[in-house]
């Protein structure tokens, strides 16, 4: 078996990057921000206690898998999807698809991706990448977090695809099967924006959306009492930077990528309000970036006393106020 002709591209995020690359490969020219925006990717959720997380954490994008599902629903694209109970059957099925020259997206636990540097390896069952070939017992992977295609041992891919636990991948694979010839982007964009506003403003759950950001601001001052020691607290506070910047967000917890989507949407919908709002969101994103830089700095300096945690809390609360105003304006503009 050899490698499929596939145009590898880096992406900001693994799921939106994978969906975009597969759609581009199948002939649909669409940008990653457009995929992210139509799929209502922008989000916020704070988890103070969760059986899968050893420490409080937060998310800045919608539920894993939703981007593909929303793109399918809103653009009329059909994705062929597969899940497997039996790992041998799942690995054979992947090989059969590759023999048919079909690059296929795979859900894996990031921890087992041995091309990832040790300091990035974490157990997270919702990483997406594209398998684009196999040479001997090595798979060729297009992972949107890497500048070039990478190699992965068969055993590592197997472990990654069939890891158990929260949101276990169950060998999940998908690829686009049908793309409509003419896509009208207007309705999907409007729907994507409306749903994003609903998620951020109206979901009746206290830890989601703007309410989630406010909960994060309230609860972060309690983090010192939950940490094993100062170094543990420092590690968790510095992870704020990673979750907002490095863990595939396009910067500022996806706010910069969503601003880019709004700018592109403004042209398509001929709606200048969206351009103004994209500028506002870029500025809100700068505030999130200040938070991530501040968190990295106080974490590194072990300067994690009550005054600094309070300052961090206030910065986060300020983002909640800004985003509440922003999403209300965005909802009105559509």
């Amino acid at each position: 078996m050899s490698t499929i002709q596939f145009n590898h591209k880096m992406g900001a995020h693994c799921e939106s990057g994978t969906v975009t690359s597969l759609l581009n490969h199948t002939g649909l020219e669409i940008t990653e921000p457009m995929v992210f925006g139509i799929a209502s990717g922008i989000f916020f959720g704070y988890f103070h206690k969760h059986k899968a997380f050893a420490f409080p954490t937060f998310i800045v994008r919608n539920r894993p898998g939703e981007m593909r599902k929303n793109i399918q629903k809103r653009l009329g694209i059909k994705f062929k999807t597969f899940s497997y109970r039996d790992s041998t059957v799942g690995m054979q099925a992947l090989d059969v698809l590759l023999e048919k020259n079909i690059p296929v997206a795979s859900q894996v636990d990031f921890f087992y991706m041995d091309y990832v540097p040790s300091w990035e390896q974490v157990h997270i069952n919702v990483h997406f990448m594209i398998v684009m070939g196999k040479e001997g017992s090595t798979y060729i992977i297009s992972d949107s977090y890497f500048p070039k295609p990478v190699e992965l041992k068969e055993e590592s891919l197997l472990r990654g695809r069939f890891a158990g636990g929260n949101m276990s991948p169950k060998g999940f694979l998908y690829y686009p099967e049908h793309i409509p010839e003419n896509i009208d982007y207007i309705k999907p964009i409007v729907k994507g924006i409306k749903k994003a506003c609903f998620n951020m403003l109206n979901l009746p759950v206290p830890f989601i959306g703007i309410k989630g950001i406010r909960l994060f601001a309230r609860k972060i001052v309690d983090w010192p009492s939950l940490a094993r020691d100062t170094e543990h607290l420092s590690h968790e506070v510095m992870k704020i930077n990673i979750l907002l910047e490095d863990q595939g967000t396009g910067g500022a917890g996806f706010r910069y990528m969503y601003a880019t989507f709004l700018q592109q949407a403004s042209d398509i919908l001929n709606n200048p309000d969206l351009k103004d709002l994209s500028e506002e969101l870029m500025s809100i994103g700068d505030g999130w970036r200040e938070i991530s830089l501040f968190a990295a700095r106080i974490g590194k300096n072990r300067d994690l006393g009550p005054d600094k945690m309070k300052q961090l809390s206030n910065m986060i609360r300020d983002r909640a106020d800004m985003e509440e105003k922003f999403f209300k304006q965005l909802r009105k503009s559509i």
Partner: peptide, 27 residues
């Protein structure tokens, strides 16, 4: 560690650039 981030370009449009990880570089 390379990442993609979205930025404001000189002509005022927003778009992606490939850059390095701030936290890996500094911490």
């Amino acid at each position: 560690q390379q990442v993609i981030i979205y930025v404001e370009k000189e002509n005022g449009t927003y778009g992606p650039i490939q850059t390095g990880s701030y936290i890996t570089k500094n911490y």
